[in-house]
Design a protein around this nucleic acid. Structure first.
Lengths: 147, 147
DNA sequence: TCAGCTAATGCAACAGTGTAGCGTTTAATG
DNA sequence: CATTAAACGCTACACTGTTGCATTAGCTGA
């Protein structure tokens, strides 16, 4: 019995998908797993830097692409035209996202499940839906002194 | 009684907003008015080219920006990280969009009105919502020989 | 009609995000 | 340990969008 049958660490997850367990790849997945919000390429790179993980910009892109290909991560386009990545926790990732217009953070709203498929006009076939709610997150809605 | 009080042409609309009626600006607005789908900067530029309207890339960007500022046009980020523009027809533009994953076109689905605000978790305050449904449009769903 | 003001233009150069090519490194395997 | 190719890391590039600035040309008022 190996750890592969119970992939709960980043290394296990990577190996389970037939990928090589490399320093950058593990670190990237760790960052994504630890994050509650979808992260941009830049934010992930910054996190790696803080952890002292040397990495190349291109390698990071390629690892993210690989994670998406493997179905481990999910990629979405924010309103700032930047890809943001997050690990796929929900089975189909069929939930909405909340974009805070003040702090720019992106949150997952698992509570919101799309129920609008019924309203699709004739001829249109839905594959997936992306719902981004814009507004202020709890942290930014709360009264603050500074800005 | 001048035409300004009844701004139904692109020139009138521009003048009514205190903008100068220039060749490119009129042409850009005309293109947007004539289109049923939100258009990217590139698509608009291509349309201008076809109409024989000489223009500069930057000027086009600035005109689009101005139109958005004036509330004449609306800007949204597609899934390909490209801004797409459309004239604001609906009062609040509170409707969904459909992105065809095959031909890349973006359609307005006025029938779909967001009714998900009720489900927002506590602490989140919604400003607006952007719902993008992905799938195949009627044109691409229909059986075709070529690709 | 014409001069003056400045919004708008057009050119060049730049910035940020993401990709492609390619030689080198290194994780996995026997 | 030798082998092999996946992954790396570097350079260079493509694309979308922005900034600076001198020039042009709408609008206004005489």
């Amino acid at each position: 019995m190996t750890a592969l049958s119970d992939p709960h660490t980043s290394s296990d997850m990577i190996a389970a998908h037939g990928g090589r367990v490399t320093r950058t790849r593990v670190a990237v997945l760790d960052v994504l797993l630890a994050s509650q919000q979808p992260l941009s390429h830049d934010e992930i790179g910054e996190a790696l830097r803080k952890e002292g993980v040397p990495h190349d910009r291109v390698t990071l892109y390629r690892n993210l692409e690989w994670l998406v290909e493997q179905g481990i991560a999910h990629r979405m386009a924010g309103d700032d035209r930047v890809w943001r990545f997050s690990v796929v926790t929900t089975s189909e990732h069929e939930h909405a996202h909340f974009h805070c217009d003040r702090c720019g953070q992106l949150f997952c709203l698992d509570a919101l499940t799309p129920a609008f498929a019924i309203a699709l006009p004739n001829g249109y076939s839905m594959n997936r839906a992306e719902l981004i709610v814009h507004g202020a997150c709890p942290g930014c809605s709360a009264p603050k002194s500074g800005t």
